[in-house]
Amino acid sequence: MNNEINYHQKYRKARSKSVGHAKKVKYVKVKTTALKRGALAIALATMIAISGIIYGGGKLIDTIQTTRIVYEATEYGRNIVLQNKKRTANKQFFYYEIDDIATELLKDPENFDRNLYGVYSSIGYNETSQKEQIEEVVKSVGNIAKLHPELGIDSYENFSDYCRQKGFVKEDGSIDYEAYEKAMKELIVDEMNLQKLQEKVSEFKTR
């Protein structure tokens, strides 16, 4: 039991040191070093013990399966970003063709929310850039949607407006990005499970 408490503490410490957008240092290798005798084995054993004791196998496997499902389901959105990420003429910087991303998103209105999440999860080179770019993408989508109501996409002013209309807002009125991300992952997994069920029913009926 004492060991378990100890590992809980180590887990919380490691997580606290790992998570948070404010943590940022240049990835510069200052030197190389040999670890103390047995140090690597202790480090590995600690990580493995933590993961096993805190979660157990089932939860861990669920977590990684969700990640895989979401990654595959958002491929379309991620590819839109990749194809519309362009270099400046001097090759020093890159930028996004926002209107082209918006146009591509509107080609599949039925899966708009899922594809938008794919764009959200891959655009920008840091959190600030990500938020700025996705605001512009949804603004552009809104402008196009106004001209083409037959697409059935609501005309959002920007990404913040999209989140507000979907209810991803904190008590202080700011956008709750974590709630948005969590809800999208759940939606994608639910959609996949629903699709599997529909296929199962269809297969049964055609026997």
Binding site: K10, K13, A14, R15, K17, S18, V19, G20, H21, A22, K23, K24, V25, K26, Y27, L35, K36, G38, A39, L40, I42, A43, T46, M47, T63, Q92, F93, F94, Y125, N126, E178, E181
Partner: peptide, 27 residues
């Protein structure tokens, strides 16, 4: 050796950074 953490790599045009993970789930 029992003090460890995980970061992820983010690149801009010229540099690489080690940044914190987005959530406990990502950890």
């Amino acid at each position: 050796e029992e003090d460890f953490c995980i970061r992820k790599v983010v690149e801009n045009d010229t540099e690489k950074f080690l940044v914190g993970l987005s959530s406990n789930e990502e950890f």
